[in-house]
Write a protein that binds this DNA or RNA. Structure first.
Lengths: 157, 157
DNA sequence: GAAACACTGCGCACCTTGTCCAGCAACGGA
DNA sequence: TCCGTTGCTGGACAAGGTGCGCAGTGTTTC
């Protein structure tokens, strides 16, 4: 990651349809350089993919909620991994992480409406290993998900 | 969104480097159809972009934490939007949402280490409008962020 | 100093893209 | 039932990008 990498990422983030050749022109470097940098960024895992970004809202899921689940502690019953497997089956579960706090799991879900959210939550809680849960609903997005600013800061590695 | 759209998204998500022509071959439809579908998906907002996906870990920020901030209620002092503006300035803030609960804000941050997390949190809390905060650290990712399963379910709209 | 590395500038064959077009089938309103 | 609309097909074209390789050059490292 150096300044050129940062500008390269910014360029492709702003205008993904530009090709390698056009990017090299805009950045004032040789085409081979751009290709090499992109290859390296992909190889080091900085760029994990180029897939289309999907909007849950546009897909008909405008409601976002965050669930905190408390998982039963017994190691014999499977625990987090088993619950994770359960969550993976639910399309509305967009994300799940274990967090600090004994046996706690944080889950991001979406739903078609506030009423539909109840159905989704019921689906999530349909697991005997879940002891308790709490829900907060996201009302508005103040800062949309982004990673780019990090790339500008870190001229490291 | 119909079945073809779903397969199209899956195809590009699995293998983003395929072009329109190759996609049309794999899906067994005409090239123009693929182009038209992609245009429509972009126009309806389902596909919001094609930018490179960046990994905070690979950028040197392996620690993720979730902060819940309580914002002072006075409308005169600006409130959420002012705090949001403050958060936007911090590169380590990847995401922020207002949530249910009076004056609460949910923030996702990353840091270079657990020690570095303290610096990041201090930066976030450096705003007089923030009354209180709590932090949980993400220990592991059980379900990585994903939207694709939604596209398979919803054959609506 | 020599090797390793990164970038440049170039060329080539191949292929994709953007953009047209005409033909055809399905759907819904008059 | 007829017609307009919409979506898909299959084809065409020019323009331009991609993948690949190569020689030359400057810079860093041992």
């Amino acid at each position: 990651m150096d300044d050129l990498d940062g500008r390269l990422i910014d360029l492709f983030a702003d205008d993904p349809r530009v090709g390698v050749l056009e990017a090299s022109r805009r950045l004032g470097v040789a085409r081979g350089t751009v290709q090499a940098r992109l290859d390296k960024l992909a190889a080091t895992g900085v760029i994990t993919g180029w897939g289309p970004d999907l909007s849950p809202e546009a897909l008909g899921y405008p409601v976002t909620a965050f669930l905190t689940l408390e998982i039963r502690q017994e190691t014999s019953s499977g625990g987090h991994d088993a619950v994770a497997q359960h969550l993976e089956q639910i399309p509305e579960v967009l994300e799940a992480h274990t967090i600090t706090g004994a046996g706690d799991l944080w889950v991001r879900v979406v739903a078609r409406s506030n009423a539909d959210l109840q159905r989704v939550i019921d689906g999530v809680l349909d697991d005997a290993r879940i002891v308790r849960s709490s829900t907060v609903i996201a009302l508005a997005t103040q800062v949309p998900y982004r990673v780019r600013p990090l790339a500008r800061v870190g001229l490291s590695e």
